[in-house]
Nucleic acid binder design. Structure first.
Lengths: 229, 229
DNA sequence: AGGTATCTGTGTCCGTCGGAAACAGTTTAT
DNA sequence: ATAAACTGTTTCCGACGGACACAGATACCT
């Protein structure tokens, strides 16, 4: 049973011979939708606005894409783009670069952080990203499921931090301010939070901080496995 | 300038004296909406269905709630519930319990994982959760911003893992299978992934695995700070 | 008491969304 | 030349969030 979404993502489209030449491609539509989402957010990427941008009617898009969900799936895989090449600098450096790279994608297309939540059809690009991270862990003594969990943790962290960026132009400061505004006048109720927010340092270090902690933890596990057991 | 959402979440509602007795409360509405979302997902929690469940018209809800977004905000704060009491077993055990507790909330109300993405109005319950985690880190040499980043990492991890749960009744196996299905026949393209998926062990360990790695990493940092510099 | 301001719940209406269905025009295979 | 197949458009629908005007209920004020 061929899933239309899977076919679309994995390029199993039957090429037609008869009939008028299509004026669009799925890539065109995905590109237009991504442009709209980049500019005005994912909710603004309606079929209507995407069609307008391409100079066609809304319903014309349904000749190329089965529905909105499938379009979003293609958008995600396109926005993530090609995964970085395999690297040979040791697993830690590679995973660090990998996490920075996917963080870069998340921040370049802020809507991807909300679009990639929950179970959804996975495209070839996304699967290649996963593959590349697992390759980096291949020469460690980690079990397969542990490697998968590691990558999930890293990707989750990158997405979580990128989501804070998605707020305003000056992100971390903005989220800082909004919290501070809430705590103001309630310092007795949230003393630890008030104290933490009073710390001015470490702006913009959120990604690397968590990343280095996770990598330290992995390194510890790898070291333990390599020695005793 | 009073923000209606903030007022609603933080209980600054002006109590009316004249006019008919209200038949509902904001808590009633939030409860009904949560029940619908728990049963059929967040998209099913429309004003219509929530109103039906309460035996009133859709528009009656707008007497209590400014709009859908504000209702979702109240839903989130209600579903998260009261944060666990402060604990005195050392920061590591406390953070571990904290992460398990918030993971429990995420899985009890699966829609919260998608609802708590991105910047949004924060309620008192959610802020108390944050406060409690920071309290656990209060006696460590971590800076305020580092403590905040730590909590963000832990919460992000719990949410990421809970999202996989949200898929089916047998969650991790399901996501495993869907990946395996994609890799099938493409093992040459995704060799590391094929190998990792072949590992049968470690099902259902994703939360603790990542959690322990992060905590190990934090512990290392704490140790380094406490000794040398 | 009676009037009146105020609040509640309802009914009606609108714009926008994703999508179904029928249609006309265009191109290729027979 | 004719028929099949495909494209893009038009029209239509139900569901959604929400604005607005209304009728009924309640408590304050004189």
């Amino acid at each position: 049973m061929p899933d239309p979404t899977t076919d679309l993502l994995w390029g199993a489209r039957p090429t037609a011979t008869r009939g008028p030449r299509p004026t669009l491609t799925v890539a065109d539509i995905a590109g237009a939708a991504i442009a709209v989402a980049d500019a005005d957010g994912l909710p603004a990427a309606t079929m209507q606005r995407v069609a307008e941008r391409l100079g066609v009617t809304k319903m014309a898009l349904y000749r190329y894409v089965p529905g909105k969900d499938e379009l979003v799936a293609v958008m995600i895989d396109t926005a993530l783009g090609e995964a970085p090449e395999p690297c040979a600098d040791g697993w830690r450096a590679c995973l660090r670069r990998w996490t920075h790279a996917i963080y870069d994608r998340f921040t370049t297309h802020p809507w991807t952080t909300e679009a990639t939540v929950g179970p959804r059809p996975i495209g070839p690009n996304e699967l290649t990203w996963l593959e590349r991270a697992l390759v980096a862990l291949a020469d460690t003594p980690l079990a397969g499921s542990e490697a998968l969990d590691t990558v999930a943790t890293l990707a989750g962290h990158a997405r979580a931090i990128a989501q804070q960026w998605a707020a305003a132009t000056n992100p971390e400061a903005a989220i800082h301010r909004s919290f501070a505004q809430l705590v103001e006048g309630r310092e007795d109720r949230f003393p630890a939070l008030a104290r933490a927010l009073a710390d001015p340092g470490g702006q913009g270090q959120a990604l690397d901080f968590g990343l280095d902690r996770v990598l330290d933890g992995i390194e510890l596990l790898v070291a333990n496995r390599s020695s005793g057991r």
